[in-house]
């Protein structure tokens, strides 16, 4: 894990949203941080290269554009774990995938542009892996705001 500088922490604390939409947004965001546009661009490049950031840009809600978003899980036999991971990750509809400690040991989020696309993606995973997909579509959303500041 790379050492984070005070500036990196400040970037993480202030830039997880509200990135400006204007001609020179990095210059504007850098101004808020009291640094130069070049300095911010360089830090962001480094944070992405170090995988401290997975991305810098817009986060979309596919349901708001007519698509579907489903949390799903598989109970993968340990001997097949790497093979099944490769199969599941190969689908572009798989947005995130986590290994978790449970009989259902693979949890992933499927994001599809259409509602019909969801059933197809699930069927494809079942066919390729030979394992039943447990689908947990949200019935109600109480809260979502994944903004965590740097720790440690």
């Amino acid at each position: 894990m790379p050492e984070l500088s005070p500036l990196d922490r400040q970037i993480l604390a202030t830039l997880q949203g509200d990135f400006p939409i204007c001609e020179r947004p990095y210059a504007e965001a850098a101004g808020r941080l009291g640094i130069s546009e070049d300095e911010l661009l360089t830090r962001l490049q480094q944070l992405l290269a170090d995988k401290v950031l997975t991305r810098f840009g817009p986060m979309f809600q596919i349901e708001e554009m007519g698509g579907a978003f489903v949390l799903a899980a598989l109970a993968v036999p340990e001997v097949r774990y790497d093979e099944v991971t490769a199969m599941v990750n190969a689908l572009p509809q798989v947005a995130h995938n986590y290994r978790r400690e449970h009989a259902l040991n693979m949890w992933f989020v499927l994001a599809t542009e259409t509602k019909a696309g969801m059933a197809e993606a699930i069927a494809r995973i079942e066919q390729e892996t030979g394992l039943p997909v447990y689908a947990f579509p949200k019935e109600r959303e109480f809260f979502v705001e994944m903004k965590l500041e740097a720790r440690a």
Partner: peptide, 11 residues
Amino acid sequence: GVIRRIGAVPN
């Protein structure tokens, strides 16, 4: 709401 927010997505 198509875009939830714009910014850094940390690991």
